[in-house]
Amino acid sequence: MSVDRAPRFTVVIPAYNEERFIGDCLRSLALQDFAGEYEVVVVDNNCTDGTAEIARQHGAVVVAEAQPGVCPARHRGSVAARGEIVVSSDADTVFDAGWLSRIDQSFRREPDRVAVAGPCRYVGGPWWGRVYAGILFELVHFVYRLTGRVLYVTATNIAFRKDAWSGYDLRGTQGADELGLLCQLRARGRVTFDRTNPTFTSARRLTRGLVYNLVVSWFFYYALAVTLNRVTGRPLIGTAPAFRNSDRPRFRARLVGLAWLAAIVALTLVGAELVENSWVAKR
């Protein structure tokens, strides 16, 4: 990874206490067969372990972001990026040797495109997680082939021209680094999807169980949060808490219950606001 000249790519890796995973991530980036210039920026998002030191040992540029959350961290890393193209990924993700080369080929085939996204495959974890990811990205690919429109991207595998990027929406919390970024980029040009160029991400979050991932992670912190925050124009639901393997089953069960309760309350509030707005409109 040479950084003597302005690089073609900057790979941005946000990190909060990722010393277990960051080494494998950076080693796989160092083994890329891309012949051009690229740099790796690791964003230290208030780490209290050896993440930042490990990143420096592997030759990454380390920048700090004090505001907690993956969106502020990605924003900080993207601002610091010197590359023509910013590539978003995660610290618990690894890549095959041709990953960057295939991204480069995609941009060179269509110089007018502003972004190219790819799928994410879970490594390890429960079987249903791998099935879920496979179905999700096959559906994304099918719709893209049918309509030319990318409906969803994963923040572990999207590359975009820096001059087409105007910053992450830091008020949007959950989803701002995926759906929010996708909407921004689609407004600026063509976004394409390459199903043949996956990233490989740890399935550690899936070990909390199917119910947790459907109810808490997806429904509450993603679908409901994105919708509710967009309707109200303010971050009523924040970003999901960072995953840690030391979480206790009893705590997880309580969190699921609280998520259901909060979802019911939030949907009631949204419904009430929509009804009130419809009455105002009728008057």
Rank of each mutant, 00 (worst) to 15 (best):
224 L>G: 00
226 V>C: 10
266 A>C: 13
223 A>D: 06
220 F>S: 01
227 T>A: 12
224 L>V: 02
217 S>W: 05
246 S>Q: 13
229 N>K: 10
238 G>L: 11
232 T>C: 08
261 L>G: 04
250 R>D: 12
256 V>I: 15
219 F>C: 07
217 S>T: 15
245 N>E: 15
221 Y>R: 01
243 F>G: 01
221 Y>L: 01
224 L>Q: 06
214 L>E: 07
222 Y>A: 02
256 V>P: 00
216 V>D: 00
230 R>W: 09
257 G>H: 11
221 Y>A: 00
260 W>A: 10
245 N>A: 15
267 L>D: 06
247 D>I: 10
240 A>W: 00
235 P>V: 08
234 R>Y: 11
233 G>C: 10
247 D>L: 12
234 R>P: 00
243 F>C: 01
245 N>G: 15
215 V>Y: 02
236 L>Y: 09
216 V>R: 00
264 I>L: 14
264 I>M: 10
243 F>R: 01
267 L>V: 11
245 N>Y: 06
230 R>A: 13
266 A>V: 05
254 R>I: 09
231 V>L: 14
215 V>Q: 03
249 P>N: 06
218 W>M: 09
267 L>F: 06
222 Y>I: 01
260 W>K: 13
242 A>F: 07
212 Y>S: 05
234 R>G: 04
249 P>M: 08
212 Y>V: 04
235 P>G: 08
268 T>G: 15
255 L>V: 06
261 L>W: 14
228 L>I: 07
245 N>I: 07
249 P>D: 04
246 S>N: 12
226 V>N: 05
221 Y>D: 01
267 L>C: 14
249 P>W: 07
243 F>E: 01
243 F>N: 03
219 F>W: 13
226 V>R: 12
238 G>Y: 02
258 L>E: 14
240 A>G: 02
257 G>A: 14
262 A>P: 02
234 R>W: 11
249 P>E: 08
227 T>W: 10
216 V>T: 04
250 R>G: 09
242 A>R: 09
242 A>G: 03
218 W>C: 05
216 V>C: 03
248 R>P: 00
216 V>Y: 03
238 G>I: 06
227 T>Y: 11
264 I>N: 01
213 N>F: 05
241 P>M: 08
244 R>A: 05
223 A>L: 15
213 N>G: 04
235 P>A: 13
241 P>R: 08
250 R>Y: 07
